[in-house]
Design a protein around this nucleic acid. Sequence first.
DNA 1: TACATTACTATGTATTGCAAGGTATAAATA
DNA 2: TATTTATACCTTGCAATACATAGTAATGTA
Lengths: 109, 109
Amino acid sequence: MNVENAKSQMRKGMLEYCIMLLLKEKPYYSSDIINRLKEADLLVVEGTLYPLLSRLKNDGILAYEWQESDKGHPRKYYVLSEDGKVMLANLEQAWSEIENTVHNLKGKQ
Amino acid sequence: MNVENAKSQMRKGMLEYCIMLLLKEKPYYSSDIINRLKEADLLVVEGTLYPLLSRLKNDGILAYEWQESDKGHPRKYYVLSEDGKVMLANLEQAWSEIENTVHNLKGKQ
DNA sequence: TACATTACTATGTATTGCAAGGTATAAATA
DNA sequence: TATTTATACCTTGCAATACATAGTAATGTA
């Protein structure tokens, strides 16, 4: 076991939450998402992001629309669906509870 | 996908961190650990805890000693090893970074 | 046409949370 | 003594997901 693995595990699920937080702001396409997450110190690669976006779309959490690009391949812009907004609210609650749990355990010392 | 599943995913790695936070305080055996985590609103079942404790012990993060009980089966009391204390410090750093990431993304709205 | 870039997909691996069930020790009871 | 009960420990199998790797498809450029 090493720290990198532990960090990777801590990010499970949390990454999904972060992407929904980002899309709450406005529509983004995949390269934008990767760059915005990088700005927030969250490194994500395509092999991680694309399956995640597909899963959220299939679950009805996200929707997308094609937009032409000034050059190259057209882009998929993802947005939160109504169900996605409800889901996000639930995740915010869940994350808050987890933060409180850790805070409580740290406070005991 | 549902919220319970998402919460379960969010707990990956974080649970390991919480148990190490708890054992930083003093030695505990499994039933104590479950109860203490329950007090911190973190529900853990045996099928989750035992494999996790075994793994941390095999990795040299935890050690244990048997202690007689006033009634019933003797108990395994787990403690943090020196390596475990180093690992915990790294996890605290990792958790702090993740909290900052989420905080940054929430702040953008 | 050939090439480069960008967006996307498909597959396999490792890790982990969790349910379900089993084993072992010791006290209580018949 | 034999059986039951309580407590504690452990194992197996499954599902979900991050990630690496490799490949496909569509568009613009030389």
